[in-house]
Design a protein around this nucleic acid. Structure first.
Lengths: 170, 170
DNA sequence: GTTGGAATGTCAACAAGACTGACTTAATGT
DNA sequence: ACATTAAGTCAGTCTTGTTGACATTCCAAC
């Protein structure tokens, strides 16, 4: 069934990579690569009593200091109960600081403490090291393609947020 | 801070994509894209009493019919106890058949039943549809780069298994 | 041939992290 | 005043990972 593409009369080149087998390879590549992607931070986290959820919270608070809980919720795509459990331990352990909003006192603005920034840095360094190696091995053009495909794979809402984060830092 | 690369005297082009901000974007792209990657099958699975783990088992049994539990274990990267729970429900529900090995009676060889193949197809179709759209939107060259970077991101052991699967089907 | 170790798979109990649902508190805004 | 919003909490459930203990089968050394 993977040979059916030879039957397509014209444009075979542009359709070649859309066979089920090609798509399947992409799916499996995503699966295996994501494992590598999370492996290094996971090893560090195992030493603390934290998990991947804590890493994600630290990452996005670091990237958008002062963000409120609702925004973080939307980015992470979890329920507030789930995020709250994580946030409570991070605040309790002195990695995250929660300040009452000055304009709207209902909101809580989140910041990393020195201690929280240190852990975030350790986790990020490990993850970035793998990313850097992958980028180097694959080359600049591959990286551009990599990002284009990943972006096309996102839900529109997540793509919007992805760009918003970039612009917020740009 | 994203402008710092202009300071690098030579080879700016080859280093441009290795700034911390570029790596951070890649990390966030992986995070958001993986969410999209799993979203469609997850919605289907919610209708059944199955989860992502069941999907993964069905996927790889479908790709390597007759595989034994140990091999599946190594591919999925979980403990045998964890896989066993998933396998038990799939076998109990008649989606997977487990045959005792003829040469080595300790081994169990796994096959999808008609029913199991049908669910696998439904899940795969949903996931492939998103993948196909992403590939189409990004273009063939981007897809090649996408795969190169993902492969470079894998642990060597997983890269080996990834290739083994491709050759087994090739 | 028996036996002891290694490999394969199963059962049971537990923990992390997600979920829903119901509720409280405080601040905002109409 | 009253409804809405932001945040947090409590309780209960589900999936999916973990360890530990155990049964079965195979194989190789004795």
């Amino acid at each position: 069934m993977a040979d059916q593409d030879h039957a397509s009369p014209a444009g075979g080149e542009t359709l070649l990579f859309l066979t089920d087998e090609q798509l399947r390879q992409g799916i499996e590549a995503m699966f295996f690569a994501y494992r590598g992607f999370t492996a290094d931070p996971d090893m560090i986290l195992a030493d603390y009593d934290y998990g991947r959820a804590h890493h994600r919270a630290l990452h996005f608070i670091n990237g958008a200091p002062g963000t409120n809980v609702n925004n973080l919720l939307a980015i992470l795509g979890v329920t507030k109960q789930s995020l709250n459990r994580v946030l409570r331990t991070l605040i309790g352990d002195g990695l995250v600081e929660s300040r009452v909003g000055r304009s709207d006192k209902r909101e809580r603005h989140l910041y990393l403490t020195e201690k929280g920034a240190a852990l975030e840095r350790a986790l990020s360094d490990a993850q970035r090291a793998r990313m850097r190696k992958a980028y180097r091995d694959a080359g600049p053009e591959a990286v551009a393609g990599f990002k284009r495909v990943l972006e096309a794979m996102m839900d529109p809402e997540m793509r919007r947020r992805y760009h918003a984060l970039r612009e917020g830092r740009g």
